[in-house]
Design a protein around this nucleic acid. Structure first.
Length: 300
RNA sequence: CGCGGAGUAGAGCAGAUGGUAGCUCGUCAGGCUCAUAACCUGAAGGUCACGAGGUUCGAGUCCCGUCUCCGCAA
């Protein structure tokens, strides 16, 4: 079976690996290179890099709906798999593969359609999420569902943790599903539109901590985004780990500053930051952080 | 060549106007204590990123070059 894979970031790498091992992937399509490091050198996306290592031909289109159609037709895949590719496909493309296109999505559809389902599921304090394999359709993650796998969101999971679990589960589910899908044993099920929800993209602003919020929400946000930040002396202080404290005070007041962490009051309690970073400095644990940065009892 | 910060004891930081380096934590030894991550005393530990570079009587501190790390932007 001829498989063409479309994906860009590292979330898609396990799926690419799994597919390639089982079926052999004849071509990989990913977004154009745009990431650069501080020196201005171009950094390849994780999928592109992986494809090169595996010796799979890579194609990149600014607009796959225009530039990619012809090539895709020539590739004549039996099935195409998308996983965090980053571009909207057209009906013309959807019609190319004999078995259509399957997508790996990081949520339990129809909830959390959209671009950052993993982040939002944690931010919202969900207790579970998962991955869904569905048919890629024209709408935003609206295709009929083929299979799904549930994952519990543990209280100590941060974005990176959940992300890693889901990308692995996604890859596993994908290869466990394809054969049955292709052979017709699985009949795709339409999504229940009444239960659908769509999450919006994450912006820089989302990472700014609002101390007027509840401790749990602040912590969930940091967990979901992987970090958060607040301004101290006009400089952004990034925080990577947070626990809920019992301190009370005016929202934004720095309650304590110890090896345990930097504790700041919020709406209903306090949050204790145990891993932080000053601009230009390295990320470090509270013990090291407070050794160099002395924060007094001011209010942010 | 996108903007900017930084490389000083194991770790985190200080070191105006240049004169061979300090603090906090940690470590080790001893003490106190029922005990301790608490406290007391003492000790070890640094060619101050690199370049047998430049200026100088003398540079961590000024100038030049290189490497590495990081924040922002992308």
């Amino acid at each position: 079976m001829k498989v063409v894979f479309l994906g860009t970031p590292d979330f898609a790498v396990p799926s690419l690996d799994a597919l390639h091992e089982k079926y052999g992937v004849s071509a990989v399509i990913c977004q154009p290179d745009k990431a650069k490091n501080r020196k201005g050198e171009i950094i390849f996306g994780a999928v592109k890099q992986r494809a090169i290592d595996l010796g799979i031909p890579v194609y990149q289109f600014n607009k796959i709906r225009e530039e990619g159609v012809q090539i895709l037709k020539e590739l004549a895949p039996d099935i195409m798999i998308t996983c965090a590719y980053g571009q909207i496909l057209s009906q013309e493309i959807l019609d190319i593969p004999k078995y259509g296109i399957l997508n790996v999505h990081g949520s339990l559809l129809p909830k959390y359609r959209g671009s950052a389902p993993i982040q939002w599921s944690i931010i919202d304090g969900e207790e579970k999420t998962g991955v869904t394999i569905m048919k890629t359709a024209i709408g935003m993650d609206t295709g009929d569902m083929v299979s799904a796998c549930e994952v519990k969101i543990e209280d100590d999971m941060y974005l990176e943790d959940l992300y890693n679990v889901l990308k692995t589960k996604g890859a596993q589910l994908l290869i466990d599903t394809i054969d049955e899908y292709v052979s017709g044993k699985i009949v795709p099920v339409p999504q229940n539109e009444d239960e659908a929800s769509k999450c919006r993209m994450i912006t820089k602003e989302d990472a700014k901590i609002d101390f007027c919020a509840c401790a749990k929400d602040i912590r969930n946000k940091i967990r979901g985004l992987g970090y958060g930040y607040f301004l101290y002396n006009n400089e952004p202080v990034k925080v990577y780990k947070a626990e809920i404290g019992s301190g009370k005070g005016v929202s934004g007041k720095i309650l304590s500053h110890s090896k345990e962490g930097v504790e700041i009051a919020c709406k209903d309690a306090s949050v204790l930051f145990t891993e932080l970073q000053m601009p230009g400095k390295k990320r470090m644990g509270a013990k090291d952080f407070i050794n160099g940065v002395k924060m007094s009892g001011e209010v942010l």
